[in-house]
Design a protein around this nucleic acid. Structure first.
Lengths: 260, 260
DNA sequence: GAATGCCGTTTGTCAGACAATGTGACAAAT
DNA sequence: ATTTGTCACATTGTCTGACAAACGGCATTC
């Protein structure tokens, strides 16, 4: 005889699960409004407090957001939700800069390979514009760092691979936030950074996979060297490099990466 | 004169943010109990409904969970929270099997490289045990598929790189769930699967990076061939291969990957 | 036609209550 | 001595009812 764990869901969890299913399977389409709280009370046969608590769970999952008025509309969770979670998880598990960097290095290389394959000109133009702006930002390390992060984000979008974008985004944000702390690093190396970006873009334009990956790898190794040279211990947990307030601000400041 | 966007947080959001900060910066340590709702009411000066709605946000973030009794304790969000989010995002953005597979292929290769570097014998033994069990599972495709997923999860843990584990886990779950649907595929190829796993493990034991990556790449390409041969269109969104109920069950069934 | 003010609707919050469930201690039974 | 029954207590889950603030939409005004 096999008996199983008893697991009774509370009312508010039931509210969450039913609405979540409805959104994920498309009964409620993205952009549609969710019924009002009063209506949900009628539908589910529970009181407003339970409905509201269930809605909070949806809210934190990124499945609903307040649209025009205060009505809730169904939304597809963008990369920033996954980023939030990744960042919380990485922070509390004391993930080190080295671990983060190693994975990011590989994903950036993959981004280069994929970009060479699909590379639409509109995406490449955006990258070119980013480089141009980066050159103008010389002398403003904070802006340079931000544009660097933006370059890599644009590159991942240029691949058209949304799994890559979703997976890479949080890593990019965390690395950026950590090095923002070590900003002195950049003063010396803005030149090298621009050179690397330019060469990467040129290689992608030429569809030269190996060259693009080579330059990207150099770029990432430069990044590491810069960190260690400015005294950072690559084996310290990221929470030593960046406080949570900064991270929270960063997450919310993301330009809501669109996944076409 | 520079005026900025006004952004007033509601009471329950404020409750969430303050508790989130406290946990992330360690004022409330992982494993500690959160004050009772009544106490939080006193502390924050708001009513229970607001406190409770704030707690729901924490709950969905994976920052708290019900411990012994019904008291809430602070928890470090494990990989399954990030997985949930990734999966919702990937599903609703209609990410295709191809996109997913391409990224997973790269991360698995990285896992091989890192495993060759650090490879502690206890982890390798676990992989060996998994292969042994896989061999016993011949004839039970469902079990084989599950053990295959488990192999890759164990491998990523063997790298000691928690950023990799957190990033890879959701991809593994999604790919597994999608192919569970195409289970016939496996009947023909369990042999090849075991051979691949064995060769990967042997190469890692011998610290032969190139060989390990080579076998892993073959293994992943086999996977793709198996999918297409059993009639799957690799360019269809994953939601065509797996319904949400299955995914939700999978997420909850995860053995709560520990990040040491 | 665009700006303004009013009104119904919906949400955010409060106030208070009760039942269900879990804890801990202690007595009773095996 | 270990297990079981019982009880008081703490805490959570849910309900009831209410009100102010904020918003959309509509009629009004210039």
């Amino acid at each position: 005889m096999r008996l199983r764990q008893i697991n009774i869901a509370t009312s508010y969890q039931e509210v969450f699960q039913q609405l979540e299913s409805a959104i994920l399977k498309g009964s409620i389409k993205i952009g549609e409004t969710i019924p009002t709280e009063a209506e949900l009370c009628r539908i589910f046969g529970v009181k407003r407090s339970s409905v509201r608590e269930g809605i909070r769970l949806l809210e934190q999952s990124g499945l609903v957001a307040r649209g025009a008025g205060r009505r809730l509309i169904a939304t597809a969770p963008a990369t920033d939700r996954t980023s939030e979670n990744f960042i919380r998880s990485a922070t509390l598990n004391a993930v080190t800069l080295r671990e983060l960097w190693r994975v990011e290095r590989e994903l950036e290389a993959l981004a280069c390979r994929l970009a060479c394959e699909v590379a639409r000109s509109e995406h490449l133009d955006r990258l070119a514009a980013n480089i141009k702006e980066t050159r103008r930002s010389a002398g403003d390390p904070k802006a340079t760092t931000r544009l660097d992060m933006e370059f890599h984000r644009l590159l991942s979008q240029a691949t058209g691979n949304r799994a890559l974008t979703i997976a890479r985004d949080p890593l990019g944000i965390l690395l950026y936030a950590s090095t923002d702390f070590l900003i002195a690093r950049l003063d010396q190396s803005t030149g090298r950074l621009i050179t690397a970006h330019e060469n990467i873009l040129a290689a992608i334009r030429a569809k030269d996979v190996d060259l693009a990956v080579l330059w990207m790898t150099r770029h990432m190794d430069d990044f590491k060297r810069g960190c260690t040279m400015s005294g950072a211990d690559f084996d310290q947990p990221i929470s030593d490099f960046v406080d949570h307030e900064t991270l929270a601000a960063l997450i919310r400041a993301q330009p809501e990466t669109s996944l076409p």
